[in-house]
Write a protein that binds this DNA or RNA. Structure first.
Lengths: 225, 225
DNA sequence: CGGTGTTGACTGACCAGTCAATCTATTTTT
DNA sequence: AAAAATAGATTGACTGGTCAGTCAACACCG
């Protein structure tokens, strides 16, 4: 149901410093993936804290102990899911930032990426948002640095736009980045909890509106469209 | 340290339908309050899930069992804290909405209220945001209706502004409300986790910037100042 | 054989919620 | 006014259930 994203495949960053066992075998890596994908479904359905490790094993169709062969702890499973995806996003932001295009398009590309991530694998995004990003106390705390990285990159984009005179200088760049991210997170949260309509059209419309509101409030009275 | 807000005092809405025991005695109500205030500190420090009921009892200086004399469960303690404060906020939004003032001031008053709530009792706001509002899976689910009420009220304000021609009609009112709320929640989250600077000046500046960004993106090219 | 992969029963820790007993204050009875 | 009765307030030891993580044994492949 949720095949690992193609772009994450080659870049798998081996989960920093954790103990997690091998994946020497071809089949080994497959089982590992199987467990990760099962975990996404279980976490999305029951929530990280409410589910048992045995639920993940059952969903994956493997024995309880095998989860601990590939991961040091229940936490590490979630960590892995988060980092895998977040790293892809950080890479994309850096890529976009380097491109010689107007801010509106840069921020638009980032918003698009996140919305498309949700469209492509809502369960995974639900887990990342609900269990990590929004759970800033428990897991977010571990990853606060990584989350902050995204913040900073976006702030950098805003700052550049201010230097170019496209964005007002009086709204602090970091504040603007925070606002941008806040709107997007709220949007996904709305979808996740069925507070907002979904569907192909809605997704595209949402991308436009996010940019319209945020850039509209940031631009000087010079840029129209 | 955190005296219950004056405006909430008389309006205490007796926590809907729950079993929670009496508070017939004068001293009884005091102890109840003592436990609630202790819970705020403990929840803020350790998190709802990470703390034990005995931690709350210890912090309050009462016996373990007494918590269950006043509250049916650990959950009910958190529910009470949330509803107490959220109801005050809903009342304020309704009040503001009724006033015959421009949108910018209406939204500004709401942003001010929330920021001031944080300034007045950061621990309480931390608990509400982190453990309820942002924990949309566990507790947010129970209160999703109440949270939604705030959404809808704000959407109503935006809609009125659109009818008056002050706000663009092409940005759906609910979407705008979501964005407004998203920015504010992200702002508080930033303070809570020390990602953003705090202090009297910052609080006031933040109020202005929130309005500047959101209203700036929503207004038609007519309103300036 | 040696190592990796796989199994699932078991353990040790944890903690929400219960409950029977005790205390304190207020009211009723004598 | 003292004693008795009633009701709420307060205590903390105890129970029952839950689960993350361990481990010793077994399977499979090269």
């Amino acid at each position: 149901m949720s095949a690992s994203s193609a772009s994450a495949e080659d870049a798998t960053p081996a989960v920093r410093g954790r103990a997690s066992a091998a994946k020497a075998t071809k089949a080994g890596a497959d089982k590992r993936r199987l467990i990760l994908d099962a975990a996404v479904r279980v976490f999305a359905r029951q929530g990280f804290h409410a589910c048992r490790v045995s639920d993940i094993a059952d969903e994956a169709g493997v024995a309880y102990g095998l989860v601990y062969h590939y991961f040091a702890s229940k936490d590490e499973v979630l960590d892995t899911l988060f980092l895998e995806r977040w790293d892809v996003m950080l890479a994309l932001i850096r890529e976009v930032d380097a491109e010689p295009i107007p801010v509106r398009e840069k921020l638009g590309a980032i918003a698009s990426f996140i919305v498309d991530s949700y469209r492509h694998d809502p369960d995974l995004m639900k887990v990342i948002i609900v269990e990590v990003t929004r759970a800033a106390n428990s897991f977010g705390d571990t990853h606060i640095g990584t989350i902050r990285d995204a913040y900073e990159l976006i702030a950098g984009i805003v700052e550049a736009a201010q230097r170019d005179g496209v964005f007002k200088p009086e709204i602090e760049a970091r504040f603007a980045a925070m606002a941008f991210y806040g709107v997007i997170e709220q949007l996904l949260t709305g979808w996740i909890f069925d507070l907002r309509p979904q569907g192909e059209e809605e997704f595209e419309r949402a991308k436009r509106l996010v940019i319209e509101i945020v850039c509209g409030g940031l631009e000087t009275r010079a840029a129209s469209e």
